[in-house]
Simulated assay, not measured.
Amino acid sequence: MISMVQYAVGDATAPAGSSGPKVIAHVCNDSGGWGRGFVTAVSRRWQAPEAAYRAWYRERGRPGNDFALGAVQLVPVEDGIWVANMIGQHGIARRGRTDAPIRYEAITAALTTLVTHCTRLGASAHLPRIGCGLAGGTWDRIEPLLITHLATRGIATTVYDIP
């Protein structure tokens, strides 16, 4: 069954809809920075995703640590709710930077992994408009990735816009 991406006005850290397991996915950078954008909402609700991301970054390059563009770190935050830290941007947005930090290939790789996690958990996916804020991406390039890698694979996908 092919489903489409659903849109909702609300807080992606408080996913609505079905009562089943949920994965809240968002894009992180590969430079260890956490403190602007959607991550601030995540950190207001739970401490674990930031702590896990910082430890993952700190231990990068060590055996067994897959921290790199395209990688996904799944962090349990509540019973039946996980946060997926997806590494999809190279560096961070800075004044004077001429290129956007978004890496669409990394988003594609991360979504492929996210589908595996959602399938294993029987979970729906809940996201803000990933990659379109500080990462500098465009929704006309991100939305087709969500459709291809999540919705057409049967993962109920909801994208949240803040009121």
Rank of each mutant, 00 (worst) to 15 (best):
I2M: 13
I2D: 13
I2F: 12
Q6C: 09
Q6Y: 09
Q6V: 11
Q6L: 15
Q6K: 15
Y7L: 14
Y7F: 15
Y7K: 10
G10W: 12
D11C: 09
A12F: 15
A12P: 14
A12R: 01
A12L: 08
T13V: 15
A16D: 13
G17Q: 06
S19I: 10
G20Y: 07
P21D: 09
K22Y: 07
I24C: 06
A25C: 13
A25R: 00
H26A: 05
N29D: 00
D30C: 03
D30N: 14
S31W: 07
G32P: 12
W34Q: 01
R36V: 14
R36Q: 11
G37V: 04
V39T: 08
T40C: 10
A41W: 04
A41Q: 10
R44N: 12
R44Q: 12
R45P: 04
W46H: 05
W46R: 00
Q47G: 05
A48S: 10
A48K: 12
P49T: 06
A51Q: 14
Y53H: 08
Y53N: 05
Y53E: 03
W56T: 03
R60T: 04
R62I: 04
G64Y: 03
G64T: 08
D66F: 10
D66E: 13
F67A: 11
A68K: 14
L69F: 05
A71Y: 02
P76I: 12
V77Q: 11
E78I: 11
D79I: 12
G80F: 10
I81C: 13
I81H: 10
I81T: 15
V83S: 05
V83H: 08
V83I: 15
V83E: 04
N85Y: 01
I87G: 01
Q89Y: 02
G91Q: 01
I92T: 15
A93F: 08
A93T: 09
A93H: 10
R95I: 14
G96D: 09
G96R: 06
R97L: 11
T98D: 10
T98N: 08
D99Y: 13
A100P: 13
P101S: 03
I102E: 01
I102P: 00
R103T: 01
Y104N: 05
E105C: 02
I107C: 04
T108Q: 08
T113D: 05
H117R: 11
C118Q: 07
T119W: 03
R120D: 14
R120G: 08
G122Q: 10
A123G: 07
A123P: 09
A125N: 06
A125K: 05
H126C: 10
H126F: 09
L127P: 09
L127A: 11
P128I: 07
R129Q: 13
R129V: 09
G131L: 05
G131R: 02
G133W: 00
L134K: 03
A135R: 00
G137K: 04
T138I: 06
D140E: 15
I142K: 03
E143W: 12
P144N: 09
L145F: 06
L146A: 08
T148Y: 02
T148F: 04
H149M: 07
H149V: 03
H149E: 11
L150R: 02
G154P: 11
I155G: 00
I155D: 01
I155N: 00
T157M: 04
V159W: 00
Y160D: 05
Y160N: 01
I162L: 13
